[in-house]
């Protein structure tokens, strides 16, 4: 099981900063429009998050992004 970026779409203003700082290309601005009328960010299917936290740090909106990080142990458990 890999790390997960969770996007709260209704908290996103689609500014595009998080895709610009993600070193692994996990995020992109999608085509769906959220409640506020923004095309919000979404996770690129199949991408691998390394839980560096840069997207959460750079994002201007509180709680728009959350990373669920799995420890090495957890990862090995699930893959075993």
């Amino acid at each position: 099981m890999s790390n997960q970026v969770i996007v709260d779409a209704d908290r996103c203003k689609g500014c595009g900063i998080c895709p610009s700082v993600c070193p692994k290309g996990c995020l992109r601005i999608g085509t769906e429009i959220n409640l506020q009328g923004y095309e919000h960010v979404e996770v690129v299917p199949g991408s691998v998050c390394i839980a560096c936290g840069m997207c959460v740090l750079a994002c201007p909106e509180p709680r728009a992004l959350t990373i669920v990080k799995h420890t090495e142990e957890e990862k090995s458990c699930t893959s075993a």
Partner: peptide, 22 residues
């Protein structure tokens, strides 16, 4: 206003800084 998003414009630096302070 909306209760889930800030009043700042998209991409504003304030949000990022305030999260760091928090």
């Amino acid at each position: 206003g909306d209760k889930k998003i800030t009043h700042y414009c998209p991409g504003c630096g304030h949000g990022t800084i305030q999260k760091m302070i928090a």
